[in-house]
Lab assay of single mutants.
Amino acid sequence: MEVVDPQQLGMFTEGELMSVGMDTFIHRIDSTEVIYQPRRKRAKLIGKYLMGDLLGEGSYGKVKEVLDSETLCRRAVKILKKKKLRRIPNGEANVKKEIQLLRRLRHKNVIQLVDVLYNEEKQKMYMVMEYCVCGMQEMLDSVPEKRFPVCQAHGYFCQLIDGLEYLHSQGIVHKDIKPGNLLLTTGGTLKISDLGVAEALHPFAADDTCRTSQGSPAFQPPEIANGLDTFSGFKVDIWSAGVTLYNITTGLYPFEGDNIYKLFENIGKGSYAIPGDCGPPLSDLLKGMLEYEPAKRFSIRQIRQHSWFRKKHPPAEAPVPIPPSPDTKDRWRSMTVVPYLEDLHGADEDEDLFDIEDDIIYTQDFTVPGQVPEEEASHNGQRRGLPKAVCMNGTEAAQLSTKSRAEGRAPNPARKACSASSKIRRLSACKQQ
């Protein structure tokens, strides 16, 4: 084909351009004929944790799935940006308080904090938690009735009371019990989460009196709706648990309003109706937990002794299953770290194939690490110290990083047969305790 000078094309009309061969290198194709290559998922490591896909996002930050490269346990990490926390009232204080509380709590029905990582340079905090497959609110939203069968609701409620009793025994008032803060594992274990607005009572406090509340409006008791200066913290949790039980068994809320002012007005009056299909035992329990006067409201001991709580409820309806993943529609909620794991395991070791967030990740503290002497050669063979940054567990980050890069360049065919977990650990520049 004859090559045409581009400067001469402006002298031709459209018809003349076609005659000189423009149609031979300008093609129009339908979008259905285009085959897009999927974007390669680059592996990203935060300390010893391999990052997966997004699980959810809230006002405080994002939650992603991660894999512990040492234990191969599935975890969830809450990623918090200090810049964003400053824009939220009491944001930083709530996060630090939640970390302090979770560090000393150990119960099967309370979410466990596994690790805390802090990135000084990017001003990011990573709260590594045990993995929960789904939230209770997500399960309720997945069915038209917006409720659980009585047998399933009873099982979840009993676990909620177990976890709540443990928190109260530790002198902690949750203040925000609701389905949105109750998570579930694949085995059906309920976990109380989000202790950001919780309050730890003084060890020598005479009672459970509280003065502040930041919980969700629909789950607040009349004493808070009416603006009382002080109130019983434990009875606030009992009320919120009662509203939660009402919601998961009926699909409704005892109090509603077009806006928060109308909602608080209705809560302050204390008038509500219980659907007739709840039955006398459940209705009596709800009335005891939603008692207007805090002094007359049920205690956890009274809830445990109630006939509806103690009764064994046979399954009359099919239980609400864990819904498919909202993004991938995966009904099994498979591990989202698998594509990243395959990338590390299947590809040659190259620095361009993975990302390490930083050479140094500070753990379990908000301060910069200490310094240790770096050896410097002298005339008599002895070495003197220069400062060298280290990880919180004493690992020399720069030395590990250099060693990792040197190993990656060394030709050794046997290394390709290593397991995925050992490869992740070798790529991680800074081991965590």
Rank of each mutant, 00 (worst) to 15 (best):
N226H: 03
R331G: 11
P324M: 04
H379S: 13
L55M: 05
K64N: 05
Y246T: 05
Q112P: 09
Y246C: 02
C73F: 03
M289S: 00
A406L: 14
P6A: 05
K269Y: 10
S378P: 11
S378Y: 10
K312W: 13
A295G: 11
P411S: 09
E291K: 09
T363F: 01
E349A: 13
D284T: 04
P339I: 13
G135R: 11
G91S: 04
L102Y: 08
D348M: 05
C278A: 09
N247I: 08
S19R: 04
A417H: 04
A398M: 15
L17Y: 14
M51L: 04
L72V: 08
E16F: 11
S59G: 15
L50R: 12
R211F: 15
A410K: 14
D53G: 03
Y126S: 03
P387H: 12
P387S: 11
R147S: 04
E342V: 12
P144V: 04
M11C: 15
S31M: 04
N119D: 03
Q123G: 05
D277M: 01
P222L: 01
D365P: 14
K416Q: 12
R28S: 14
D330H: 05
L113H: 04
Q214G: 14
S428D: 08
R297I: 01
K403R: 06
Q159S: 03
D237E: 05
P275F: 04
K108A: 09
K191R: 11
R384H: 12
Y246W: 07
C132W: 00
T250A: 06
S213G: 11
V368G: 11
L201K: 15
V66Y: 07
T367A: 11
A225V: 09
Y36M: 05
E65R: 04
K403F: 08
A241C: 08
R75W: 01
V133C: 10
K191A: 07
A318R: 11
V133R: 02
A295C: 10
K269W: 03
A414M: 14
K423Y: 11
S69A: 07
A218H: 04
V133L: 05
I161M: 10
S216A: 04
L45T: 09
H345F: 11
G408S: 14
E342N: 11
Q214T: 15
R415D: 12
F148R: 00
V133S: 06
L183F: 05
P275Y: 05
V390T: 14
L228M: 03
I356M: 08
S334R: 03
G10S: 08
Y292P: 11
K403T: 08
E130C: 02
Y126T: 00
A318Q: 15
N266R: 10
K64P: 05
H202L: 04
E130I: 02
C278N: 07
T402I: 09
Q159L: 03
A206Q: 06
E375W: 13
G187P: 12
V3S: 10
C278G: 07
P413Y: 12
E342K: 15
G56V: 01
E16Q: 08
I99E: 15
L252M: 04
V66K: 11
P280T: 13
S19I: 10
E317P: 15
R103G: 03
G242I: 00
H345P: 09
S213R: 06
I424A: 14
I177S: 00
K269L: 12
T24P: 15
R384Y: 13
Q137I: 05
G242V: 00
T395N: 11
M136R: 00
G381Y: 11
T250S: 11
T328N: 02
T230S: 05
G242C: 00
S401P: 06
K312C: 08
I424W: 04
